[in-house]
Design a protein around this nucleic acid. Structure first.
Length: 112
DNA sequence: TGGGTGACCATAG
DNA sequence: ACTATGGCCACCC
């Protein structure tokens, strides 16, 4: 059961469910949460999460094109790519390789 | 109350 | 590849 008090928690919860070596998109999470949440909120929540020092694998969340748009928010631009490669995800030119294969669909895998 | 912002998305040119 | 526009919606002045 999830609280509705903070929609951040919903986003964090979904993000934490992303399996190691898989990625998803802001839009997918937003769509999964549905009910009026948009992709911008997800990215914004990630920013807040980082500020709050919440344990959220934000490096597994990229935009719909598989680009590491949020890499500048990890303290160092190369950190995000490094974390991904550490999990076996290949990154080329700031984009996830085999993005479609590695894509993790919250609404399919989680399926509340 | 209203304007600005944003780790997005879609479409258009 | 690029900018521009509209939509999205919570947050912060």
């Amino acid at each position: 059961m999830r609280k509705n008090t903070d929609f951040f928690e919903l986003i964090y919860d979904v993000a934490r469910e992303i399996p190691r070596g898989r990625v998803t998109s802001y839009g997918a999470i937003g769509k999964y949460l549905g009910s009026g949440k948009s992709a911008r909120m997800v990215g914004w929540a990630m920013n807040v999460a980082h500020s709050q020092k919440k344990i959220v694998p934000a490096h597994r969340v990229v935009n719909r094109n598989g680009e590491l748009t949020g890499k500048h928010h990890f303290g160092h631009p190369k950190l995000m790519q490094k974390l991904l490669e550490k999990e076996g995800i290949k990154v080329k030119n700031d984009k996830v390789v085999n993005f479609e294969k590695l894509f993790w669909y919250p609404d399919v895998e989680l399926k509340l």
